[in-house]
Design a protein around this nucleic acid. Structure first.
Length: 876
RNA sequence: GGGCAGCUAGCUCAGUUGGUUAGAGCACCUCGUUUACACCGAGGGGGUCAGAGGUUCGAAUCCUCUGCUGCCCACCA
């Protein structure tokens, strides 16, 4: 075996190792055996390059899939990308505008612009796929998918038609969110609410109008058709049902009907609300209510899709922007003494998440998914299906219940469903799946392909990108043509995503999957938080605080990046990320490399399949039982998706226990080669899911490049329920060695032998060996004994244990009665403590569910407490 | 307005049905040219767990209230 270089240089190995993995064929589960386990990639948008958040996602997924693969499962990590309809078109248009093409849609037309976007998307896609490889992600490239490829597009059309035929997709005229800048609708979820300064105007429509109303958007009042009051409001009750005709300068005088609505707060403002059905979602709901009651009010749109006033707004206003119209209308109010109050307020408005402009509420004919309609075959609505999947389980089957980690997001999700309105799925942008509907005069035709015959024209609109992402778990697995993969890998086993896309994506996947394929999309979902910089700020281009994952990989290596991303995080919570964190991980990776370097230098011929050797000494027993615990621990923590804690425990074992103690002992005690070999093999396997490159490289250096660690068997452990005596003994010695130093520093105990010699790791263990008898004596020493001896002489005590002479200095005389009382109290509380702890450990639930290290710790505490109790008992 | 999370060492964060003395990494201080590793080793300092009550033999952990920070949702017209 050749000697490893002194330092690990990731750049030298990573690409070669990735290539070797790919060529091995083990990324493809068809070449594996066992139970299927599947993870679907949340497909990154083809809008640019991957950032740290993606690196985190890759680390999470790849760690999980590598773990499952080593556990002997047919592990599938299916990669893909998302065409990201509006995001991509917005990005390309922005770039074009920056380069002087101010009106890309007019300049290029639909087909040409689509070509430009496609070209961008393809190049972006290639970049992204290359980055995924750089991150070491072990995904099955043979199953690569894209939301906009032929197979996925077919799935989109099939589901659309199915929903259309069930009446779950309908076309309707309703108030929707409209981005003037993007010239497209957006769904409620695509709005980003921002706070801004606004002016609230309080005024009357005319001198004779009996009610006073307020608005921050007075220009929309040109389209008012009602004033709503609370039916319980005594001031206004008498007006309910009356209609007033007012002339505010619109094309026609307005018919303002006074209507009753429970939603109006009596105490708020004037208690009267001007109703503009065409330009407010709430007002539109009132309009619908009135219509349903048979007391209809009018609907008068005064703002067009270009963001300018329509003819209905009147000659004075037509063609003006809303801002211009507002100024003019307020002037008119002032001139006519109708303006009562003008005040500055803070206001929340919805902006388009992709185009950034404040959206207008406009009535338009659009396609919607009806979330409340009862699906005939199921006797449930889509909302019901979405709820069921995370509560009682799909179809009431508890085995088909989605587990959300952390649990609190369940509530957030359910609350969102309760407030969910019909989902507007049509967009007026061009980049996306075209609505599979054709028109000829009054005729409408919905199918996968254009109808036969002349004169049909396809709907111009495209679908919300989340419509296709919603199908992701099954559209990527061959549905509907080839159900082989669906049978094996669906529902998918595990999924991770950021908390910002719970509604966009998780909710839509649950909706689509339960509806279309009658199953949940995934069994478990792990929600991760957002990465921020060390000051808690978001990473952003404008803040210029970004860390490019590829740069980090180049500088520190992929393993260091992955390890730092998985350390110190907890599900659902944001975490800070900074250079020092990667450095720390890089140092660990190098440490592991050097541990291996040293260990394999000691071994004549390393054995890849070495079995657990027999322990010969106390330290052997100690390290081997520690190893069992960390094996069991890692497995349990990974099963619970607790990556962070798994890393921490493994790191402690590897560095603080194995390297700092056992390796040092091995320098002075011979005959440990087999144990070293066995332990190193095991920790390389345990570490592999987290830091695949360095572990794989060490493995191949030692056992040859044809042996692949990635598919070695995972070292499962039996969870130890009883702590071995030897383990406790060794820990005691460890504590004694450091304990003496502490006491010395406090000048309480002055051992005769020189502890200065204890500096340096090798010497530390030499010392233990040389003085093993002394240490054993010290281990039996308890403060009480010292105290007792000291008390006899009142000031100081010296006694001999073996070769050791120990002196105790007391600062003052001790009151024996008080000491007895104290002991009595301690005895009582200790008894209760032991009882409580014994009950706890007798609880099967606890032993089964708690991580092994916790159980071990509790046992240790119990035996320590018992020993202490015995001692006190003897004293009394 | 409603909801959720966070407040633990100088910094970033863990802390598992409540368990005696609250942990890690980084930073800091002291010492060390010991041939696996200075991307190292040995040791050290540093926390009234945001505050106030309560339950308990025992609380960072459970309950109540308060304060601050952040996030999500929302029809304050």
């Amino acid at each position: 075996m050749r000697e490893l270089p002194k330092a690990y240089e990731p750049q030298k190995y990573e690409d070669l190792i990735y290539k070797r993995w790919e060529e091995s064929g083990f990324f493809n589960p068809d070449n594996l055996t066992g139970e299927p386990f599947s993870i679907l990639f949340p497909p990154p948008n083809v809008t640019g390059v991957l950032h740290l958040g993606h690196a985190l996602e890759n680390s999470l997924m790849d760690t999980m899939i590598r773990y499952q693969r080593m556990k002997g499962k047919k592990a599938l990590l299916l990669p893909g990308t998302d065409h990201a309809a509006v995001a991509t078109q917005a990005k390309v248009e922005k770039d074009l505008i920056k380069h002087g093409h101010l009106h890309p849609r007019e300049e290029y037309g639909r087909e040409k612009l689509l070509d430009i976007i496609r070209e961008f998307a393809e190049s972006s896609k290639a970049t992204i796929l290359n980055q995924i490889k750089k991150m070491g992600t072990s995904c099955d490239w043979s199953r690569l998918a894209y939301t906009f490829d032929d197979k996925r597009s077919l799935a989109v059309n099939i589901v659309f038609k199915k929903m259309y035929d069930h009446g779950l997709i309908y076309r309707g005229y309703r108030v929707v969110n409209w981005s003037v800048k993007g010239q497209s609708t957006c769904s409620d979820d695509e709005l980003v609410h921002i706070e801004r300064d606004a002016k609230m105007y309080t005024f009357k429509y005319s001198k004779d109008f009996p009610l006073v109303i307020s608005s921050t958007r007075p220009e929309t009042k040109l389209g008012d058709t009602a004033v709503a009051v609370n039916p319980k409001d005594e001031h206004y009750q008498k007006y309910i049902g009356q209609t007033f005709v007012v002339d505010v300068g619109a094309q026609k005088p307005l018919n303002i009907k006074i209507i009753a609505d429970d939603g109006v707060e009596i105490e708020f403002g004037t208690g009267a609300l001007g109703v503009t059905p065409a330009h407010s979602a709430i007002d539109y709901e009132m309009y619908s209510k009135q219509k349903a009651q048979g007391t209809p009010i009018d609907l008068v749109p005064v703002i067009g899709t270009d963001g300018k006033m329509l003819a209905a707004a009147g000659d004075k206003y037509v063609g003006l922007t809303v801002i211009e119209a507002r100024i003019k209308f307020v002037e008119w109010l002032k001139e006519n003494n109708l303006l009562i109050k003008e005040e500055d307020i803070k206001q929340n408005v919805g902006t388009s998440d992709r185009f950034g402009d404040v959206v207008e509420a406009l009535p338009l004919t659009q396609w919607f998914v009806d979330v409340n309609k009862i699906i005939p075959s199921k006797n449930k609505s889509l909302k019901d299906l979405m709820k069921e999947a995370v509560t009682v389980g799909h179809n009431g089957d508890i085995n088909q219940k989605i587990k959300i980690t952390p649990e609190r997001f369940e509530k957030v999700y359910l609350n969102w469903i309760d407030n969910l309105r019909d989902w507007c799925i049509s967009r007026q942008i061009w980049w996306g799946h075209r609505v599979p509907v054709w028109y000829k005069g009054e005729e409408i035709y919905c199918d996968l392909k254009a109808p036969e015959g002349e004169g049909w024209s396809q709907d111009e609109d495209t679908l919300d990108t989340w419509f296709s992402s919603g199908l992701w778990t099954f559209s990527t697995l061959g549905w509907p043509d080839d159900l082989k993969d669906i049978g094996a890998y669906h529902p998918t086993s595990w999924m991770q995503m950021g908390n910002e896309i719970i509604f966009f994506w998780m909710a839509r996947m649950i909706l689509m999957t339960t509806y279309a394929v009658d199953a949940i999309p995934f069994k478990e979902v792990y929600i991760h938080g957002m990465l921020r910089d060390e000051h808690g700020k978001k990473f952003s281009k404008s803040a210029n605080n970004g860390i490019d994952p590829l740069d980090a990989i180049k500088e520190y290596g992929c393993d260091a990046l992955r390890l730092s991303l998985l350390s110190g995080i907890s599900p659902g919570n944001d975490s800070a990320f900074y250079k020092e964190k990667i450095e720390g991980s890089r140092n660990f990776v190098n440490k592991l490399w050097n541990i291996s370097r040293y260990v394999f230098l000691q071994i004549e011929k390393a054995d890849k399949n070495i079995l657990k050797p027999k322990a010969k000494t106390l330290s052997d027993k100690w390290i081997l039982s520690k190893l069992e615990i960390v094996k069991a621990e890692t497995e349990k923590l990974l099963d619970r998706s607790d990556f962070s804690l798994a890393v921490e425990n493994l790191r402690t074992f590897t560095w603080a226990e194995f390297a700092d103690w056992y390796l040092e002992i091995a320098k002075v005690e011979s005959g440990k080669e087999e144990i070293l070999n066995y332990i190193l093999n095991t920790i390389l396997k345990l570490w592999h899911p987290f830091i695949p490159f360095v572990t794989e490289q060490i493995w191949s250096e030692v056992y040859g490049a044809d042996k692949i660690l990635m598919v070695e068997k995972w070292p499962s452990a039996v969870i130890p329920t009883v702590v071995e005596e030897s383990l406790l003994q060794f820990e005691t010695i460890r504590n004694i060695v450091t304990g003496i130093r502490v006491l010395r520093a406090e000048n309480k105990i002055e051992p005769v032998f020189k502890l200065e010699a204890m500096i340096g790791a090798g010497k530390k263990l030499n010392l233990i060996k040389e003085n093993s008898e002394i240490i054993k004596s010290l281990a039996r020493l308890e403060s009480l004994e010292i105290l007792e001896k000291a008390q006899k002489s009142q000031t100081s005590a010296g006694f001999v244990e073996g070769d050791v002479e120990i002196y105790v200095e007391l600062s003052g005389a001790i009151d024996l009665d008080k000491e007895k009382e104290r002991l009595q109290k301690e005895f009582e509380s200790l008894t209760k403590f032991i009882n409580g702890l014994e009950n706890k450990l007798a609880n099967e639930e606890f032993v089964k569910n708690a991580p092994p290290a916790v159980v071990e710790k509790e046992h240790q505490k119990l035996s320590e407490a018992q020993a202490k109790l015995d001692k006190i008992e003897a004293q009394l």
